[in-house]
Design a binder for these strands. Structure first.
Lengths: 210, 210, 210, 210
DNA sequence: GATGAATGAGTATTCATTCAT
DNA sequence: CATGAATGAATACTCATTCAT
């Protein structure tokens, strides 16, 4: 009986961890953080309650881990050209990617909307230095600011082609609000968006704001 | 010496009830339903825990009472012309009223967003026949459907003046998503909307969708 | 406005007191002591909760007052010839009176069976010197002992006429157990005793034990 | 090191469960259901309050479990010859077994008398389909009816040998009331029944009603 | 690593009792 | 005398977390 290599152990650990996180994501996003119990997660993941604490220090840390993992996934699938400005084609692509991400990670977005809107959960997480969210290694706040700047610059540059009546700030707010509103509806009531209208929303946003 | 008159008692009751509801609204909307404890509400209202139960049968009923009270307030301030179609002027007025309501009842909208996004709370309330929400006496669901129809008809009629390229469904979705997205941001991060941009959003929405 | 005479006041007090006690007896005997709330009693009696405390120091004292009142009623209706021995006719009459009392005070007997069987209630009452039960001014314990002696003597004397095989202690136990068992059933499931069998029980007991 | 086997866990569970049930039986039967608190049970069993809920869903379920366990114990020790009629010998044996059961399960009978006499507890239990009592798998009501029929038939058959003056219904009532009355006294005041009189009661009942 | 029994602080809720009017 | 708003201690029950095995 040769002992398993540490790589094998590591792999097993990662698998278990992923199992727990996936199960927890489902429950947190469907029932909310408070209404989800560790017992439920454990039962649905087919493990014991105690085992969870082998992988995560607390319920809060489990949540933070889930959020960070998804942020990274999104970041990787996004992969914007940092340190540069957005061309109209890149902007169009950006919109398409955003919508694709909504579609592919609906569970996660549900979690974000539910959890981020809950002072008490979010703030508790924010207080804990170990629980700061990062996107591709960058603190979420910083990353968000960067993305906002990218957007903002794009709309400011647009003013040059659209003329003096074009108010870049208002336009950007219109754009981002539409996006947020769509996300909200699509995530919580996807039935309202059959594929046809989903696509139309994408094309309309591109037509109006590119 | 002489005992309080029943009118005096009634007045005391109404005042206390309002105090409890206001305190609870603040807590529910800031921390969410589950994270808010009766103890916290009582402490902040300066009353004993038990007293709350003299006025509300349960935490759930307290929440329902708060929601219904605000729905009625909104309804009264809204006072739409039922059973009619919307003229462009009325539509414009509708938008202005909506934004005014966002501004005046921010705390309540926070509650709505938080609670509605928490499966388990909302559904529990819906199960309880005593807890059905009403707007001016009309069940909320019915009222919502009516408002949606009013909107929908407006956009369909717009097609006549806007020409064949105008897709009423997509336009309405764009409009309502922008509204939702704005509400979300304004409610949870009002700092992003100084008065200047708040007004600009109103005017832009009117200009684009009227 | 001449003030009411103190006799009038006293009469009013007594009426209110009786109202409260009657209402409470009904509730205590039907639902038990713990399950009955002061609020329920007050509501059913049509008075305020506070008023009860004008007449009785506590819930326990209210119970004790009810029990004592009924004990006295029973005593008066009983009126046995103290300080004497029982003749067979008196014994027969005693049986008839007992059954009549069961019939007339069923509510009270229900209370007795429920409360007396509840250590915690009864013992609490016994601890309180003000709450000792009395029958016609005599402490209940003393009165019970006296009655037991009367019975006992009766059965002992019976031995003389019944012969040496007659065991007075066993006979008395048989007799008193039958009485208790009948009371228990009659009080909690009176439907099992239509008038016909009620009478037959009386006659049979007399025939067998007189 | 190695985790406990599931058999080990099962054994631990059964032991703890029995400990809790025994402790609770003692408290319920001595103080009544309402007056007994989970805290008291836990303290006397030497466990935490929470642990009880690992084994029983509620206080009511705990009570139901205790009652059912005892009913089964009694049933097994009883083992009457179902589907047959009672011979005098069997009837005599039946009486002896009943008395033996009173003696062996006094705590349980105390519970039965207290709980059954507490409207609100018993009825609550009856409402809950999961809490229906069963005796050897047979619903209690059905079992009771069967036993009553067995008795009834016995007394009816007795009429043939006892002559026309024998009233089977009255005789059966006398018999069952004596039994109930004895049980009541023996259970709540066993001091009144030294072994000598206990035995005499048995023999007398047999002599009189066999 | 894995288990689940055990803990205890916390939660909603009830209710006898008090007291200002 | 009468009221009912107000209190607070007590109760059943929950659940994140710990720990012996």
């Amino acid at each position: 009986m040769s002992p398993r290599s540490s790589a094998q152990f590591e792999e097993m650990r990662e698998e278990k961890k992923a199992l727990i996180m996936n199960t927890a994501l489902e429950h947190f996003s469907d029932y909310g953080f408070h209404a989800t119990t560790i017992s439920h997660i454990a039962k649905h993941a087919g493990i014991s309650k105690g085992l969870m604490y082998n992988y995560f220090k607390s319920k809060e840390e489990l949540l933070a881990a889930i959020i960070n993992r998804s942020l990274d996934e999104i970041y990787r699938s996004f992969n914007p050209d940092r340190d540069s400005t957005l061309t109209p084609d890149e902007f169009e692509n950006f919109i398409r990617r955003i919508f694709a991400i909504f579609r592919e990670n609906r569970q996660f977005w549900k979690l974000i909307y539910r959890v981020m809107l809950q002072r008490g959960v979010y703030e508790h997480l924010s207080d804990d230095p170990d629980a700061t969210f990062t996107v591709g290694g960058i603190p979420l706040m910083e990353y968000s600011a960067y993305m906002a700047k990218l957007m903002s610059d794009y709309f400011i540059r647009k003013k040059e082609t659209e003329g003096p009546d074009f108010d870049p700030v208002t336009e950007m707010l219109m754009f981002s609000n539409t996006l947020k509103g769509f996300a909200l509806t699509y995530i919580f009531a996807p039935g309202q968006y059959p594929d046809e209208y989903f696509e139309k929303m994408v094309e309309t946003l591109i037509r109006k704001y590119r």
